[in-house]
């Protein structure tokens, strides 16, 4: 087996008493696109900055193609490119100058591809960075990273601030990278983006990887959404084993079922159901169930006021 593009071994990071990452084991294989999802403060950026050697792990280690991210930083960085969600560049340099500088420091640039990228993103490289809008600044960092054709792309919310058209252009770039056998680690809050691009998806929560797998695997593991409409009153389904997130609206009920659906169907059958709908959860529902109940949090926040 070849060495994975990215591998972490019990990677832990504490900031004082904050435990940002708690023993993470993650693998991104060569040619694979892995998505990383998680609520704000879950530890995605921490993970990525550890991979890049910008942060020093409290325990454990991270490797890029088998090279330790702390001890062999320079060698590892020859093979990777990074896009932060927001970069602070040198405000007085123009876009072209920034690309020139970063290209020189990286050492390898695919010149033709750079031209293609500038064209594709419609970037005006004559403008000083100071004069660029947020989205255009983001395009500049994207071009700077993609033009190196590095073996691993580490992307932390790379499309923040991009318009939908540019989002499309970005997706095209990731597809191209995948075709060329580049590996990608993508952290994002845009679920459709992750769903469209990633082979595997990991969900991070409070510094732990709570779920990891392909979309299909994750769907199987998770609950089924069931919606039913009744003739008369809605039966009480909350006590049935495996049923959760029950919502009742008039004569309609919506709930999620984990494990066997039989007990629920028996209750429905005895009550006179007129319409029954069941489907696999959307990515959004899947993640909301992992991110914790947002309604409960909003309620808490309200009470806090």
């Amino acid at each position: 087996m070849t060495t994975p593009a990215i591998e972490t071994f019990d990677l832990r990071k504490d900031f004082g008493s904050t435990r940002a990452l708690r023993g993470l084991n993650l693998q991104v294989n060569e040619g694979e696109v892995v998505g990383c999802l998680g609520p704000n403060g879950a530890g995605k950026t921490t993970l990525i900055r550890l991979l890049l050697g910008l942060l020093i792990p409290t325990a454990g280690r991270a490797e890029i193609f088998g090279m330790d991210s702390r001890r062999q930083t320079v060698q590892a960085h020859r093979r990777l490119a990074y896009v932060p969600g927001e970069a602070s560049l040198w405000p007085t340099l123009s876009g072209a100058e920034t690309l020139h500088l970063l290209g020189r420091v990286h050492g390898h640039v695919d010149e033709d591809y750079r031209v293609t990228l500038i064209d594709r993103f419609g970037l005006d490289v004559t403008k000083r960075v100071r004069a660029l809008s947020k989205g255009n600044r983001q395009k500049l960092i994207l071009v700077a990273a993609l033009m190196t054709r590095a073996d691993v792309l580490i992307l932390d919310e790379p499309t923040s601030g991009l318009d939908p058209l540019m989002e499309q252009a970005f997706r095209l770039c990731v597809h191209e990278a995948k075709e060329r056998g580049q590996s990608v680690l993508l952290s994002s809050h845009i679920l459709s983006e992750v769903e469209a691009l990633c082979d595997r998806i990991g969900i991070l929560r409070s510094g732990e990887l709570v779920e990891m797998g392909t979309m299909t695997q994750m769907r199987h593991l998770s609950a089924l959404t069931v919606e039913a409409t009744f003739e008369g009153n809605v039966p009480d389904v909350t006590r049935i084993a495996g049923v959760s997130m029950v919502e009742v609206q008039g004569s309609r009920v919506r709930c999620q079922v984990r494990g066997s659906i039989e007990p629920l169907l028996q209750v429905f059958a005895s009550t006179g159901v007129i319409e029954l709908l069941s489907r696999e959860p959307s990515l959004e529902e899947l993640f909301l169930s992992h991110y914790g109940s947002p309604t409960a949090e909003v309620a808490n926040a309200d009470r806090g006021q």
Binding site: L54, H77, A87, L89, V105, G107
Partner: peptide
């Protein structure tokens, strides 16, 4: 502190 150094240190350029 501004984060400009990040741009350099993610390159093959050591601290």
């Amino acid at each position: 502190s501004r984060g400009q150094l990040d741009n350099l240190l993610v390159q093959p350029f050591s601290r």
